[in-house]
Amino acid sequence: MRAAATAIRFLTRLPVPGGAETSETFAQEIRRALWLFPLVGAGIGAATALALWLADLALPFALAVLVALAIEARLTGALHEDALADLCDGLGGGRTPEDVLRILKDSRIGAFGALGLGSGVALRAGGLMAMPDPAQAMIVLVVSGALGRLLMLAVMAAVPPVPGREGLGASVASSADWKGLGIAALLAAPVLLLGAFADARAMVVACILGVVFLFWYRGLLRRRIGGSTGDAIGAAAYVGIVLATLAFAMER
């Protein structure tokens, strides 16, 4: 229960009691909490799907999608959106690894960050709007929430943290491994089966896109900054959500 509370508190702004309260207990609980990230992601997707259903009762579907995504950003504190913007700023504006890492520490958003974040949100919103009906969009929100966090864990396992870099992202990434990723996938199996039931071909496409992205992203991070950071990991989750959404949109 403590691991579950830690995972929820890490990925959302919900003040769930029972999670790790100190850096020492966080280090102890985060390894088990990582296994639950895809399930928490599915739960975030379910909450967003509920918001979409309620908004669709009063608004045109396109507006309902935007309202639901705004509510999700409030629920998560725009955790992954912020990481995506920071990473785009760093990779777009930095010429050397030192430049990139310096820009990643800057909380201000630049042109590359604004374009990257805007493009990501637009692609996700457009993919949801392209669904044949609200019910399919609701399923995709749940499934993509799980797949995005699975890709996040895969990046943690495949790309070691930047040497010598400290922080929350590095401490979380150092706890991930391939065994944990396998356990997380097994725990999220019911959600993945839901996606396969809704559209098996789209699920296959989403998984292929995720694997291709992982190999490309691994090379990019190693070449540009020598490893992963918290922003790089968080951005991967949002990219995974977008790729899964587009996979289902293409197969409609």
Score class of each variant (00 low, 15 high):
Lys105Gly: 09
Lys105Pro: 00
Lys105Trp: 01
Lys105Cys: 01
Lys105Phe: 00
Ser107Phe: 01
Ser107Cys: 02
Ile109Asn: 02
Ile109Ala: 08
Gly110Asn: 04
Gly110His: 11
Ala111Phe: 08
Ala111Gln: 12
Ala111Tyr: 02
Phe112Arg: 07
Gly113Ala: 08
Ala114Gly: 03
Ala114Glu: 04
Leu115Phe: 13
Leu115Ala: 15
Leu115Tyr: 11
Leu115Pro: 04
Gly116Arg: 09
Leu117Asn: 11
Leu117Pro: 08
Ser119Ala: 15
Ser119Ile: 15
Ser119Asp: 10
Val121Ala: 15
Val121Arg: 07
Val121Ser: 13
Leu123Tyr: 03
Leu123Met: 15
Leu123Pro: 06
Leu123Ser: 11
Leu123Gln: 06
Ala125Gly: 10
Gly126Asn: 08
Gly126Val: 13
Gly126Pro: 05
Gly127Glu: 15
Gly127His: 13
Gly127Ile: 11
Met129Thr: 12
Pro132Gln: 12
Pro134Asp: 01
Ala135Phe: 06
Gln136Tyr: 00
Gln136Glu: 04
Ala137Trp: 00
Met138Lys: 01
Met138Thr: 00
Ile139Trp: 00
Val140Ala: 01
Val140Ser: 01
Val140Arg: 03
Val143Gln: 05
Val143Gly: 05
Ser144Gly: 03
Ser144Pro: 01
Ala146Gln: 07
Leu147Val: 11
Leu147Trp: 02
Gly148Arg: 10
Arg149Pro: 01
Arg149Lys: 14
Leu150Met: 15
Leu151Trp: 13
Met152Gly: 05
Leu153Gln: 12
Ala154Lys: 11
Val155Thr: 15
Val155Gln: 14
Met156His: 11
Met156Phe: 14
Met156Trp: 07
Met156Asp: 12
Ala157Thr: 13
Ala157Trp: 07
Ala157Phe: 06
Ala157Gly: 09
Ala158Val: 10
Val159Trp: 09
Val159Ser: 12
Val159His: 09
Val159Arg: 13
Pro160Gln: 12
Pro160Glu: 13
Pro160Thr: 14
Pro161Thr: 15
Pro161Ser: 14
Pro161Val: 15
Pro161Asp: 14
Pro161His: 14
Pro163Ile: 05
Pro163Tyr: 04
Pro163Met: 09
Gly164Arg: 11
Gly164Met: 09
Gly164Ala: 12
Arg165Ser: 07
Glu166Tyr: 05
Gly167Glu: 09
Leu168Val: 10
Ala170Cys: 07
Ala170Ser: 15
Val172Leu: 09
Val172Trp: 08
Ser174Asp: 14
Ser175His: 10
Ser175Glu: 14
Ala176Gly: 06
Ala176His: 04
Ala176Leu: 05
Lys179Leu: 15
Lys179Ala: 14
Gly180Trp: 05
Gly180Phe: 07
Gly182Val: 14
Gly182Glu: 11
Gly182Gln: 14
Gly182Leu: 13
Ile183Lys: 12
Ala184Val: 13
Ala184His: 06
Leu186Gln: 06
Leu186Lys: 04
Leu187Ser: 04
Leu187Cys: 03
Ala188Asn: 09
Ala189Ile: 03
Ala189Gln: 01
Pro190Leu: 07
Pro190Trp: 05
Pro190Phe: 05
Val191Met: 02
Val191Leu: 09
Val191Gly: 01
Leu192Arg: 00
Leu192Ser: 00
Leu193Asn: 03
Leu194Gln: 08
Leu194Met: 13
Leu194Cys: 00
Leu194Lys: 03
Gly195Val: 04
Gly195Gln: 07
Gly195Tyr: 03
Ala196Gln: 04
Phe197Gln: 06
Phe197Arg: 10
Asp199Lys: 06
Asp199Thr: 00
Arg201Lys: 06
Arg201Val: 07
Ala202Pro: 02
Met203Trp: 02
Met203Glu: 03
Val204Tyr: 01
Val204Ala: 15
